[in-house]
Design a protein around this nucleic acid. Sequence first.
DNA 1: AACAATGTTTGATCTAGGTCAATAAACGGA
DNA 2: TCCGTTTATTGACCTAGATCAAACATTGTT
Lengths: 248, 248
Amino acid sequence: MSNCLTLPGLTCSDCRMSPLCLPLSLHADEIGQLDAIVSRGRPIHKDDYVYHSGNPFHSIFAVRSGAIKTYAVDSDGHEQVTGFHLPGEIFGIDGIGQESHRNTAVALETSSVCEIPFNRLSELSIALPTLQKRLFALMGMEVNENQELITLLSKKSAEERVATLLLNLSARNHARKLSSIAFRLPMSRSDIGNYLGLTLETVSRVFSRFQKTKLLSVDKKEIEILDMEGLRSLISGHDTPPCSEKAG
Amino acid sequence: MSNCLTLPGLTCSDCRMSPLCLPLSLHADEIGQLDAIVSRGRPIHKDDYVYHSGNPFHSIFAVRSGAIKTYAVDSDGHEQVTGFHLPGEIFGIDGIGQESHRNTAVALETSSVCEIPFNRLSELSIALPTLQKRLFALMGMEVNENQELITLLSKKSAEERVATLLLNLSARNHARKLSSIAFRLPMSRSDIGNYLGLTLETVSRVFSRFQKTKLLSVDKKEIEILDMEGLRSLISGHDTPPCSEKAG
DNA sequence: AACAATGTTTGATCTAGGTCAATAAACGGA
DNA sequence: TCCGTTTATTGACCTAGATCAAACATTGTT
């Protein structure tokens, strides 16, 4: 445990996830400077916390391996899952607007994360405009993703919500050179339901229905997408299209 | 129309909204530098667009007067209202993550907006770390607000949603030294419903119910909050609290 | 192997809010 | 002022998904 820093590959430059992660678009020498402020943590176990809601905000984090769930707790004590974070993805941005985190981050499985002190990162971004641009873009993408989730929660049916999540995970797996058709869900049905604004029973029923209609094969947490196009057509199309052609 | 730049008060330093707006936390000389890149637009009318979804992203905007609605259009053509923006507030952040806007911004009433070219703003933020910090904080707050909306859409009843919006508008009016108990809604029932993930009929029914229970007085778009505490208790409290004291 | 603890599936029933429909009030032009 | 258009209210009915409940796997523990 104390010698894990002697393992190979413990710089951003060596990290397989680098092209997806914060270093995206930085030059080799710039990545070196980033490397200097990133600290790579030891593995954390399932159910270990990275930070809690209310903790002072110091750092953002990158997932190196495993999967991290973030959730917010509102005034009533209701938990709302706000994201699932896969290798190469950044989380912890929920603390930037205030002095403290609004979310809690917990490992869904054995994981490892890199910690990036935000003060040092923003200082560095003054010297490296590319990095500043990357940071703004990263936060902007977070805003856009949240807006997509808002639309989903506000307007979509249970089937559309589940299909959207599966296609989203599929695309993210594809981006990290994993199979886009067969993968393991790192989270429970209850986490999925919470994230999608559904009960776990509804999520389970949708999975069953998708199996019956040969869209998916589901074995516990192992998912295989049998009909990608069918899934895609589910999330866009069965509605009045904004008036285009009509034969006649 | 060509002489509107001769009107008084057309710098950030003079603007009454400055303490709420982007210049917050900047020193006088820093505000001067910001001023140099901000262009103040002529008034825009109700239903005029500030930008459309898909437009290339160049600038963010500040509301000087009036009210702006932003909405996203998803693949199905569904519109999702993503925000109502009041004087002193920034909008347009939806374009930062990509090269183009994801939202459309439209005036709900006669308004005026300041345009701030984002490239020049981020350059300036390299010279002014306070400004950089302010920008990060602004985007972080946007993320947090979106997460609150996500929780609302995912977990709250129609009454809680409407009460939350009213209290939110009340607080924002208070921040700009307007009445927190009596104000005019700049948006339609349908906009409110769209934003809150409800139909306009449900919004109307909730307003009626709130009137009947003496929480509000509603006259078309004029709202008076008659029982602030009653409204507050609606949005937090009627649920199993996460087990604390219990006499006995 | 027996066990609790946890997570998943499936069924039966209920309800909040959606949908459809009919007025009614307010607004904006000529 | 009158008329067409948009916006808001209210009612009757319906449905997607929640809730309640039971059975069943799965995992880890002693």
